[in-house]
Amino acid sequence: TEEFVRLWREAVRHNQTLHWNGTDFIPGDEWAEEFARREEEKL
């Protein structure tokens, strides 16, 4: 979602874990980066 992408970019900028829907998205984590890339492509 647009909100997820916005929060993810913020988390990456501050190198912080994003807690989203009970899942931890960690900047630099391969799975999280791939998920975020797919979400961005949907926008």
Rank of each mutant, 00 (worst) to 15 (best):
L18K: 00
R37V: 05
A36L: 05
V5M: 12
F25I: 02
R37P: 01
R38D: 04
F4M: 00
D24L: 14
R38C: 09
K42S: 08
A32W: 03
F4I: 00
E39M: 15
G22R: 03
A36Y: 07
Q16F: 12
H14Y: 13
F4P: 00
V12Y: 04
E30N: 10
E33I: 10
Q16R: 14
T23V: 15
N21M: 15
V12M: 08
T1E: 08
W20I: 06
L18F: 08
G22H: 07
W8E: 02
T17F: 05
E3C: 09
E39A: 15
E30I: 13
R38W: 06
P27H: 02
F25P: 01
N21R: 14
N21G: 11
Q16N: 09
A32K: 01
A11P: 01
R37E: 05
R9W: 14
F35N: 02
R6E: 11
N21D: 10
T17K: 11
N15R: 08
T17E: 04
R37T: 06
W8L: 01
L7N: 05
E3K: 05
W20T: 01
W8C: 08
A36C: 08
L7T: 03
W8R: 00
T23N: 12
V5Y: 06
D29E: 12
R9N: 13
R6Y: 10
W31V: 08
K42Y: 07
T17Y: 05
L7A: 14
G28I: 02
E34W: 10
T23E: 11
W31H: 07
F4H: 00
I26W: 07
E2P: 10
E2L: 14
E33V: 07
E3H: 08
F25W: 04
Q16C: 15
R6W: 10
E41L: 13
A11Y: 05
L43N: 05
F25M: 07
A36R: 01
L7P: 02
N15W: 09
N21V: 04
Q16G: 05
E40A: 12
T1M: 14
E33D: 07
T1S: 14
E33Q: 10
T17S: 08
T23G: 07
V12K: 15
A11K: 01
F35A: 06
T1D: 11
I26G: 03
W31Q: 08
L7C: 14
F35C: 08
W8D: 03
E2V: 13
E30P: 15
P27G: 02
R37D: 04
F35V: 08
T23A: 12
N15P: 00
W31C: 07
